[in-house]
Every structure is written in C-alpha cells, then in structure tokens.
Nucleic acid binder design. Structure first.
Lengths: 146, 146
DNA sequence: TTTGATTAGTTGCTTAAACAACTATATGTC
DNA sequence: GACATATAGTTGTTTAAGCAACTAATCAAA
C-alpha cells in the first residue's frame, strides 16, 4: 500500500479540488467578459454535443459524469435558452435525443477558444511533461472511484 | 507559450475536474457509511477549525476558497447542527469568531481517518512521485488563477 | 469630527448537485 | 401473452455556489 504515508497536511488540497474550482470560475468569468451567457455546466453539455450531436440524456449523463436529474434540468435550461431541443426517439419511446440548435452550433468556435485560452492561463509555467503526469494521476483517480 | 499545443481533446477532463468530483462523492459516501451526517463542504470548514479554532468567517473564506455568502450559510448550517457557534469579537464588533463545539471536536479523528482512507482509495496505483508532480501542477494552476 | 472608503457579514435570487421516489416504456422469461 | 425486471427520464427536497445589493462597524484623512 504505497500511499499509507500520504501526509495529512497535504490531504485537504487534494480533496477539495481547489484547482478545478479555480479553473471553473475563471472560465465562467472569461465567458462573461466575452458576453457568452451560459454556465460552465451548460457549456460542458454542449461540448459533448459538438463532438456528437443527438446524444440521449443517458449518454450525456455518462459523458459529463452527472446523474439523471442533473441532466434533466440542464437540458431543461438549455432548451429554455433555445440551445438544444429534445426529440423523442422513434425506436425507443423512453429516449430523448438531444440536438443542438443553430444558435448552439454558432457558440462552438468562440467558446472553445475561450476554454483553450483559459487553460493556457491555468497552466502557465507548467511543462508539458508535468501536464502529462497530472493527467495520468487524475485519470487514475477517476478510474479508481467512478 | 509552451501550452499552445495543448491538445483540444484533452481539454475537457482538465476543465471539468471529474477527479475531484469523484473524490468528493466517494468521501461523502464513506461518511454516510460511517453514519457521519455532515456534508463534505461542512467538513471542509471543520477541517480548518480543527487546525485552528476561533477563525473569523473571512479567514474561513480564505482557507476554504469560498465567498462570504457561502461561508455565512455553511456556518448557519453548522450552527444549526450544533457543531460550531458564532462568538462576536470584542475587539472588532464586525467580526464573528467561529468556535467548535465538543460535538465537532469529537468528529475530528473519525472523519480524518475516513478522509485519509478515501484518499488512499483514490490514489491506489499512483506512485508518490506522480502524486508530488500532480500536487505541484494543481498548486501552480491554483496560484495562476486565484 | 465629519466625511469617505474599506472591511465583515447578511440577504435575495438563480443555477446546480445529490438522493429518493416516481412514471413510462422496453425486455426477458415462463 | 403475462409478469417481473431493467432502463430512460421526471419531480420533490435539501444543500451549496456565485453574484449583486445591502447593513454595520472600522479606519483614514482632512
């Protein structure tokens, strides 16, 4: 058990995810400065639809690591903003396919640029080698717990 | 600018903080299994009070990286649970000093053990060297954005 | 010593997360 | 075909985050 000696003083920062909170806040701020009026949670749903449009709500749950009620309400809000629409599947009437509107399609380039720029702000002074290792660790943590 | 070539496909996992979400969920679950009936956010406030009792709400804001309304309401809830009490400072009547109750003092050992165990679950298979680098990266990100 | 700015904390409002309970549809089995 | 079970999605409730607007106390400066 290689982690038994994990030092207690270091515990808090790992658990609380201050870094990801900071990234989320900065991204939200950068959206706002560019007059992009969506939340980062809404953006995270759009992000997966830009990669593949017409996902079901369950697929969005898996992709965004959220539970079903969270996705129901995010889709509710995105629908109110006219950024997506629910389309009942003909094969399986339990399923809603979620499709981007043209308004949402037009957000892709701008918001991806903002997200990339935000990430550059966040990772300033970090080497690509360090990033690789950090990514491996975070992926490993995720796989251990998901 | 060493991060310009940051690959877009990798962006999402970094931004969304799925790993810290996973840790938070697991910690909450582990609390529940041990019949510890507090939220991880409440725990994060207690954590800093265990290190130094009698912090002001502003000091708790700084320590936990939360804004003032968030701390107001977390302290509200902790007070309702009889885990802390607000004591008006005599030096400066704007300030509330937050003190642990004996009930909260008694939660320290058990919950710290659960947190350490949760972190061991999370970091299973990750080497100490990798952890060090991941911590450096997360600290660097935090410093860049805070 | 009054005025202006700063600091500490609270309240209102909207969005979201977590969990349980629920409806509706589909599937598998006898 | 009928019944049990699983899957997709919704609703209700509590807790929390983020932001703006607010009150109260302190400090600074003329």
């Amino acid at each position: 058990m290689s982690n038994n000696q994990f030092k207690k003083g270091e515990l808090y920062s790992f658990i609380t995810g201050k870094a990801s909170t900071a990234i989320a806040r900065r991204l939200q701020k950068n959206f706002k400065q560019s007059n992009v009026d969506i939340t980062i949670e809404q953006w995270s749903v759009l992000y997966h639809l830009w990669k593949e449009d017409g996902l079901s709500q369950q697929q969005l749950c898996d992709a965004t690591f959220r539970d079903k009620p969270s996705i129901t309400r995010l889709v509710d809000n995105l629908e109110r903003l006219k950024l997506v629409r629910r389309v009942a599947s003909k094969d399986d009437r339990r399923i809603n396919m979620i499709y981007l509107t043209t308004a949402a399609q037009q957000l892709q380039e701008q918001t991806m640029n903002i997200a990339n720029q935000t990430l550059n702000e966040a990772l300033d002074g970090v080497t690509n080698g360090q990033i690789e290792i950090a990514k491996e660790v975070l992926q490993n943590v995720y796989d251990n717990l998901k």
